[in-house]
Design a protein around this nucleic acid. Structure first.
Length: 245
DNA sequence: AAAGTCGACAACCGCTCAAAA
DNA sequence: CTTTTGAGCGGTTGTCGACTT
């Protein structure tokens, strides 16, 4: 069957993400969650394909993402899992908290593949996990769980869950708060707020002044290029995923 | 110092699958 | 049951910085 392209290619930006785009995506997903990747860029004020947004979030922006510097343990795990699972990068990533499938895949092609082919013993040495198909099935199942969100468990993913606690409808009625943490669901639990703070702090650490300035610009997000879906009643129907959070 | 090469990482593309209509 | 849609996955390509000549 003929498929529509995942997005209308015309006018959509490609290539490296700018800080501003990251900021918009981050701000939007943090606040509203990834309720619909296809629609998200429109409301977040991004000229990007939804897939591109999803990828950017999953591989780079989401909380607790680890970058670079693979430990020996991690590399052994990747080698071992690759030996038993093959190129099922998402399944492999599920065993490595904080690592994205894309990053693992890149690391494999760049480094580990070479290492394994040069020194097959390292592969055997690392091999511990069985190739039991039932084990793989289990991985597959957990992997494909709709709420799995790429191995982020609730305790690791405060943002998505906290964002879920405040629907756009709520947002639209309870208006702009001035600080970052304030924007994150005042109805959420204490632990979530604490987690958020730690995440924001970590993010700021790696990304400079992101959180010290952007939400100060909150009003511009809400009024200009950063539209809350609540504007469109299509997105506040009872069937809307917002209401399931 | 400039040019060329290589490696690592970021992002895109096309496909499949599952769920919804 | 069929069609449509969106999410997710894996392969591939593009980009950029570090290193070498």
């Amino acid at each position: 069957m003929a498929r529509k392209p995942c997005c209308d290619k015309s006018g959509l930006k490609k290539g490296t993400w700018t800080q501003e785009e990251d900021r918009k995506l981050m701000a939007y997903v943090t606040r509203y969650g990834s309720w619909n990747w296809r629609q998200l860029p429109k409301y977040a004020g991004l000229s990007r394909c939804g897939k591109s947004c999803r990828l950017r979030w999953m591989n780079y922006l989401r909380p607790n993402i680890k970058r670079g510097n693979y430990t020996k343990e991690e590399e052994d795990t990747i080698i071992r899992l690759h030996d038993s699972l093959g190129n099922r990068w998402s399944a492999i990533a599920a065993q490595l908290p904080g690592r994205s499938d894309n990053e693992i895949k890149n690391h494999w092609h760049a480094t580990l593949k070479k290492r394994v082919s040069e020194n097959p013993a390292s592969k055997n040495g690392a091999k511990q996990k069985s190739c039991d198909p039932t084990q793989q099935k289990t991985n597959q199942e957990s992997d494909s769980h709709p709420n799995n969100n790429h191995q982020i468990n609730p305790s690791e993913s405060p943002i998505l869950h906290s964002s879920s606690s405040s629907s756009p409808q709520q947002i639209s009625s309870d208006q702009p708060s001035s600080t970052t943490t304030d924007t994150v669901a005042e109805t959420s639990t204490e632990s979530i707020i604490i987690d958020d703070i730690s995440f924001f702090g970590a993010y700021e650490e790696t990304r400079g002044n992101f959180w010290t300035e952007p939400f100060l610009d909150y009003n511009s997000y809400m009024t200009n290029d950063f539209l809350a879906p609540s504007i469109d009643h299509e997105y506040i129907s009872p069937q809307n995923p917002f209401f399931l959070w």
